[in-house]
Computed example of a mutant assay.
Amino acid sequence: MFKFIPLLILAALTNLCSRNETAWAYGGADRLWDLQEINGVPFPATTTLSFLDAETIAIQGPCNRITASNTVPYPWVTLTIISSTKMFCPDLQYEKSLTNALIRTTIIEILDDVMILSNTENLNMVFIAAD
């Protein structure tokens, strides 16, 4: 009987190591997040963010849909753009500022219906859950 204990311990450790530690597991999943403001200024164009899975984030900007990956553990975030559509619209200037802000984020906080993407250089993006 005691010879099975090491196998049980190994199985438990393997399960803990494979657990998702990204923002998806800490309240980000299964919600649509509406961008409200960047650095205290209301964002003038409709923008939403959603977590497609543990490592993939979809952003519907004012003009284009952006897909990004995040593989670092919560509360850290490093968004790497995977793909983006290339549509033109009158709000393209806002989308450029949005994309620049997203790739500069390094910290994510999810507090109930509020999600904040920020960095240590005074960037602060506030999202509110749409559901």
Rank of each mutant, 00 (worst) to 15 (best):
G61H: 03
E55N: 09
E55S: 08
S18E: 13
F88G: 11
A68V: 03
T99V: 15
S118F: 08
A29L: 02
P42G: 10
A29D: 03
S83R: 00
P44T: 14
D131C: 13
F88H: 11
C17F: 11
M87Q: 13
W24Y: 15
P75Y: 05
S84R: 10
L32G: 12
D113F: 05
I110M: 02
E109A: 13
I107F: 14
A12Y: 07
I9L: 14
Y94R: 00
V126I: 15
A25F: 11
Y94K: 01
S50W: 03
F88Q: 11
V114R: 06
Q93G: 08
N122K: 04
A58R: 05
I66A: 08
G27H: 06
T48E: 02
A11L: 15
P6C: 13
L7Q: 06
S69P: 00
I82L: 04
D112Q: 09
I116R: 02
Q93K: 04
D113G: 08
W76Q: 13
N20R: 09
D91V: 00
I59L: 05
T120K: 10
W76F: 15
C89K: 01
S83D: 11
E55V: 12
A58I: 10
P75I: 05
I82N: 02
P6S: 02
D34Y: 09
L98T: 08
R65W: 07
T106K: 01
E121R: 09
A11I: 15
L49C: 01
F2E: 08
D113Y: 10
I66L: 14
I59Q: 01
Y94D: 07
A29I: 03
N70C: 05
L35K: 04
P42K: 05
A58C: 06
T46D: 07
N20E: 15
T67P: 00
S84P: 05
T56K: 01
L8S: 13
A12D: 06
E121T: 10
W33E: 10
N70E: 06
N122Q: 08
S84Y: 10
I128C: 07
T46M: 03
M115R: 07
L111F: 05
A11P: 09
E55L: 05
D131S: 15
I116F: 06
S18A: 15
L7G: 12
T120E: 15
G61S: 14
F2A: 12
M1A: 12
I107K: 07
E95T: 08
N70F: 03
S118V: 14
G40R: 00
A130C: 13
Y74M: 07
N119L: 10
Q60F: 11
L52W: 06
R65D: 11
N15Y: 14
P6M: 13
F43C: 01
I110W: 01
P6R: 04
V41G: 01
V77R: 00
